[in-house]
């Protein structure tokens, strides 16, 4: 590293006209910044136009939403939000939100705990049969989940766990989602081995190496997993549909579908309004958590 620094100094010293070069570099930086922002804004427009359309539509009269693709409404009002917030069948909007929140937070906790522990075993412990188990773990990704629904339901029914949150959460605490395990394995394998080997040589067992060396280094992966675990749980429809019976345990996705019913009256306005409301907490969650993505801790570890 010190050689690198000295090269820079030497280069700067040998430059015949350091001032003009600096100016050129500044100008270059400015052009670069402008280009980057133009690109970002272009992506922004594409990314957000549908979001804006959705937001504006939530203010439209309910019969103008489907079939009218224009952005501007003929009239705007908060009626749809009033319907959405009124609750369904005596269960309030806030109950649905609370259930969603509880499920999502517990999913994050369970997923992060269990997946990181499992991933550590695969990435860093040299135990017999590791490759076989790893292949099986990847194997669980292959089968479309629809054919597993009924057998899994039977398991939980025999255990008397239908109409509880257990079937929706137990998989998260048992690292059943190979996506997260594999994600963390990939990140762990990219952590330089010297770091944890040093700790091992110092007499740390795997448990301490995992807790005090690996977990902090894994922050980007943990944040990423938390974001996904939260969002997926937040949007999960099928699990709650099958396993929850009492409306007071329903999360938002179940409630959302009740506004559109092909067999009677559909209220598209209320559905969009509730979708907008349901998006706010996830957006907030993402806004807060993405900040932690900014500083990669892994690089600090490398400096030593």
């Amino acid at each position: 590293m010190s050689t690198a620094t000295s090269t820079t100094t030497a280069a700067a010293l040998s430059d015949p006209a350091p001032v003009s070069r600096k100016a050129r570099r500044q100008q270059g930086a400015l052009t670069r910044s402008v280009v980057l922002h133009v690109l970002s804004i272009a992506v922004l427009v594409v990314a957000l136009y549908p979001a804006v359309w959705m937001l504006v539509s939530s203010l439209k009269p309910t019969n103008e939403i489907v079939g009218d693709p224009s952005l501007l409404p003929s009239s705007a009002g908060l009626d749809n939000f009033r319907t959405a917030l009124a609750g369904i069948g005596g269960v309030s909007f806030w109950t649905f939100t609370w259930n969603s929140l509880l499920l999502a937070v517990l999913s994050v906790v369970g997923t992060v705990l269990s997946s990181s522990v499992t991933a550590y075993a695969f990435a860093r412990i040299d135990f017999a049969g590791r490759r076989v188990w790893f292949a099986l773990m990847i194997g669980t990704l292959l089968l479309p989940f629809h054919v597993l629904i009924i057998p899994q339901y039977i398991v939980f029914q025999k255990l008397g766990l239908v109409d509880t949150f257990v079937p929706l959460l137990i998989g998260k605490f048992l690292a059943a989602e190979a996506f997260f395990v594999f994600l963390m394995v990939q990140f762990m394998r990219n952590v330089p081995r010297e770091l944890d080997e040093a700790a091992r040589i110092d007499g740390c067992g795997h448990a301490r190496t995992f807790g005090s060396i690996m977990l902090p280094l894994l922050r980007p992966a943990i944040i990423t997993s938390s974001i996904f675990a939260f969002i997926w749980s937040w949007n999960d429809f099928l699990g709650p549909l099958l396993y929850l019976n009492s409306p007071e345990k329903y999360p938002l996705p179940l409630a959302l579908r009740l506004f559109v019913d092909q067999t009677s009256v559909s209220d598209y306005g209320a559905q969009i309004a509730m979708s907008v409301l349901a998006l706010l907490p996830v957006m907030l969650f993402f806004l807060v958590f993405q900040r932690f993505l900014v500083d990669g801790v892994a690089t600090q570890g490398l400096k030593g």
Binding site: L106, V109, G110, L113, S114, V117, L161, D163, T164, F165, V166, L169, I170, F173, L174, G205, H206, A207, R208, G211, S246, K249
Partner: peptide
């Protein structure tokens, strides 16, 4: 060396059992 591992396992189990308790309406 195993103790912290057991702690992790125990925490996970407790979490799961706790869920059973709070979910069982």
């Amino acid at each position: 060396k195993n103790r912290p591992v057991l702690t992790i396992a125990a925490t996970l189990c407790a979490g799961v059992l706790g869920l059973t308790a709070c979910g069982g309406g």
